[in-house]
Design a protein around this nucleic acid. Structure first.
Lengths: 357, 357
DNA sequence: AAAAATTTCGTTAACGGACACGGAAAATCC
DNA sequence: GGATTTTCCGTGTCCGTTAACGAAATTTTT
């Protein structure tokens, strides 16, 4: 019933704890012979390392870098809080987290910033806003032996270890199902969003269309012009469309900016009959939901994404752990009027960091 | 930048680490004088104990008891898995978890089992199925100095430390909002459930009615007879009602059994137009959702409830930590057809224990 | 074959806190 | 005032692991 320790393994294998430590953590300085023997004995005894003792005994610190945009939005503020929380709990493991931030979410800017990062300074990196442009940078880090994980936005063509974030296609499907159910399967809807480069928007768009095509043939999708990440543009674009097609009764927004724009537009036109399904929880969207301008929100839980990315990266560095699949999906929450307050409650922040929802 | 240790406090306070240890963990054997001095210095330096070192140095183990029904349902199986996970991660802290199980969820049976438990055997208890009858037992443990937390089902009138679980009233509101939105705010609905003793059912019922009364005045609620926790009874009860009132188009079920029964009934009657909103994720409800007999499910995440209860209880015992509010609400998830698979995926179980959703 | 370089491995001092032990000082008793 | 008890406190060992330091064994070089 008692725990198996290095000492017990050393005794049974007829060697010293130094050698056992070297063998189990594949450090060099062990002969193939004794390494095999130690591994065998450890397996027999069912050895499970004591993480606490390991953290306590570790001399040098682990440095990880967290790269994500520096924008004054709730979204990045939440991600930031996630890394703060990660640092708080991981510092006991001898982990330091350095934030690498850049002014916009433009992949070009991100890339310029990442170019300056020397892989030798870090034992691991967590990178957001990993548009196609950043693949080369990610691969540069990996080639230098520094593992990279992506969060929130993936870079599937890079050699990143894994991705932590939402399943964008699925959240598009969810948006479509909600809207379709609210409309009893028929009506005229439109999609607002930034269709340029960032993949999550494209994937959500794809998921939405996929659902409508397969499950809601009586819903007609009106094309809506590109609106980048500008609420003003989104609002104007939607207002124009409604002027042309007054019987629009549903709007799906693929991101926060377009959601904000759409809500502004329906409110200005006083069209409460138009069901808006959008993304992200902010003062603005919460108020709209509360007042009935918004039918439902899809919430990405950004806090959790940064936190998990950091935790798992450390686990990889320290224990060599690797997930069984390359994409780890944090689930997308559905927010309605009745469960909104539990997320907006100041206690929610407390709950989130203490209850690990 | 470097961590504050007992040694540093001892030096600054002009004493030894032994005394500092005694003062900070209020063990006896320190004079009021030096205790005050140590506490003052610790405060100044911003001392945060190193949990790992503390766990490593502790000699005796912490024993906690987890009491919940032994029933062959997915629900209790999930709770069980949560405690297994808790044990796995807490064993490093020198924690043992003993499961205390009883055959049914009947509060009388639970009480009989709890009567046999000697508080002296445990450093803390986590108790489910804490109907009114169990208040006296809970208070007996607390009086004996063994802290008790409740999970899944609360016992607010007892002296339990806190509760971890869903907000039942809120989930009733959510069910009503979903159903009301699906029905465009008008129609004839009924409520199925066990209205006898267990409080969550009553609270969900209350939440549902509250919403309908305030927000959906055009929805008419038909009373439906009591159906205990018997799917067969629920099915019969609903079938009878539909025979009398054919234009029923919505059903809210307050628990798993009634959900199973309602789904069975609408399927038998081939009434796809009736929107059913129910509770809990099992093979049965998942299939119904997939095939379109069920409109939405509310998911309580039982895995998380046991896990969190255990974690927080240990935190209380070891660190004297107490939450700022007595009810810690794990959020209720909305499950639709489009996000169902991510919960049913065999990978979900893996994600759940590795991603801490 | 001796010298040098390299590989392998045992010993040991941390890491930060818990707790047992025993000594010194203070308080109580006769 | 001496003996005894009680209170207070410093020292030291231990928990399981890491990693530095050398010593010994082995290989390579000259």
């Amino acid at each position: 019933m008692t725990r198996v320790t290095l000492k017990m393994i050393a005794e049974k294998a007829g060697t010293s704890i130094g050698t056992v430590d070297r063998a189990l953590n594949n450090r060099d300085g062990v002969s193939g012979d004794s390494k095999a023997r130690v591994l065998q004995v450890a397996e027999e005894l069912g050895y499970r390392p004591n993480k606490f003792a390991s953290a306590l005994g570790r001399k040098k610190t682990i440095r990880i870098g967290a790269a994500y945009p520096q924008e004054p939005t709730d979204f990045y503020h939440d991600i930031d809080r996630g890394f703060d929380k990660a640092l708080e709990e991981l510092q006991y493991y001898g982990v330091e987290i350095e934030k690498i931030r850049y002014r916009t979410q433009d992949p070009e800017i991100a890339r310029a910033r990442l170019c300056q990062v020397d892989p030798a300074d870090f034992d691991g990196l967590a990178i957001n806003s990993a548009g196609a442009l950043n693949v080369s940078e990610i691969d540069r880090f990996v080639a230098a032996g520094t593992p990279v994980v992506t969060f929130n936005t993936d870079a599937p063509d890079s050699r990143r270890l894994f991705y932590v974030g939402n399943n964008s296609r699925q959240s598009g499907l969810m948006g479509a199902e909600l809207l379709s159910t609210f409309l009893h399967g028929q009506g005229n809807v439109t999609i607002l969003g930034n269709f340029s480069r960032a993949t999550p928007f494209i994937e959500r768009f794809g998921g939405f269309c996929e659902y409508v095509q397969l499950e809601a043939p009586d819903i007609h999708i009106y094309p809506c012009s590109e609106c980048l990440s500008e609420p003003g543009l989104a609002a104007k674009s939607l207002t124009d469309l409604i002027a042309r097609v007054p019987d629009i009764n549903g709007v799906f927004c693929t991101g926060y900016s377009s959601t904000a724009g759409a809500l502004q537009a329906v409110k200005a036109l006083n069209r409460r009959d138009i069901k808006v399904v959008g993304y992200d929880l902010t003062e603005r969207t919460a108020t709209a939901l509360r007042e009935g301008w918004c039918a439902a929100l899809l919430y990405q839980n950004p806090y959790r994404q940064g936190l998990q990315a950091a935790r798992l990266l450390v686990r990889h560095i320290l224990e060599g752990w690797t997930p069984p699949m390359p994409r780890l999906h944090v689930d997308t929450r559905i927010i309605l009027k009745t469960n909104l307050e539990s997320y907006m409650d100041p206690q929610y922040e407390w709950l989130q960091s203490n209850l690990e929802q």
